[in-house]
Simulated assay, not measured.
Amino acid sequence: MYPLPDSKTAAGPGARYKVLVVDDEPTLRLGFSYALSDHDTDTAANGTEALHKLNAEDYDIVILDLRMPDIDGLRVIESLRRHGNLLPIVLCSAAITPSAALRAITGHVVDFLLKPVQPAELRGVVKHVLAPGESLFSQAMALARLGRYEEAIIKLQQADGTEPQIQAWLGILRAIRGGSLEGEAAAFSKLERQGLSDLAYRAE
């Protein structure tokens, strides 16, 4: 449904995307929409509203809050994946636990924003996800979003191994690539030790 972008087909830097921002805080929805004013941005106040909108319309990407009062972000992810929807999702929260991160990653969500979020990070993560460019790291993450972990690992192994972000993702993807309970336990242990500081998106 959502093929791996490449340098020939990915939209350019000025592309306009349809973005759904899901957060139960009205001020954050307004701020995120303003920061993404170069795109066609829609909002939802909770998980239920988000699922209704996602069933009714096509979006390019979702910026999704983790903690919401009705249906939390993880349940939104699981509902979409259960129905075969591989829409790119960026999980956004002030505090993402190792268990939440692992559930998201195994649901093909590998893009995280840690609140408070800067406008440059919002704009940057949309470009990072939808127009990944030719860097090995960007292409590896594009593969990981499709659950193609082995291919993603090969890309990361070809990249600059001294980068903490690359090493962190190599460790997580290696742990879960087989889809086994043992692998998930190993990934959980890694997340407990290092947190999301090296995994979360940061504007350059």
Rank of each mutant, 00 (worst) to 15 (best):
R193M: 00
A35Y: 03
E151C: 01
L122A: 10
D65R: 00
I71H: 00
P13W: 07
Q157V: 03
A159I: 13
H52Q: 13
E121F: 14
A187E: 00
M1D: 05
E150K: 08
S79K: 12
K127Q: 15
S7H: 10
L74C: 12
A35S: 12
S197Q: 11
H52I: 10
A56T: 08
R174D: 13
H83L: 03
R145Q: 14
A100P: 04
A11M: 14
D24P: 02
Q118R: 15
V19G: 04
E25H: 02
V76W: 09
T27V: 11
R81G: 12
P69H: 01
W169F: 09
A142L: 04
L102N: 06
G12T: 14
T162P: 12
E204T: 15
L122H: 13
R16C: 13
F112V: 07
L74R: 01
G12N: 14
A187I: 00
H52Y: 09
S135V: 14
P98A: 10
L66V: 07
A175K: 00
I154F: 02
S189V: 07
H39W: 10
A185H: 13
S33F: 02
K190P: 00
N46R: 01
Q158P: 02
T106R: 14
S37G: 07
V62L: 09
V76T: 11
Q139W: 02
R193S: 00
Y201D: 10
R81E: 11
E25Q: 06
S197G: 06
A120Y: 09
Q139R: 09
T162C: 11
R67M: 06
V76K: 00
D24R: 01
D40P: 02
R148E: 15
K18W: 12
V109D: 04
Y59E: 03
G12K: 15
P164H: 06
V129H: 12
I153R: 02
S93A: 14
A101Y: 02
K190W: 02
G183V: 11
A45S: 12
K115G: 05
L54G: 03
R202F: 04
A200Y: 06
L199K: 00
T97D: 11
E182H: 10
Q167N: 12
T162M: 11
V129Q: 11
V76H: 04
E49S: 08
L136W: 09
A186S: 07
A10S: 15
A131K: 09
G179L: 03
P88D: 13
S180L: 09
S33W: 02
C92V: 14
F112Q: 02
A94Y: 10
A142E: 04
R174T: 13
S99I: 15
Y2N: 05
P164L: 03
G161A: 11
S135H: 15
L86T: 10
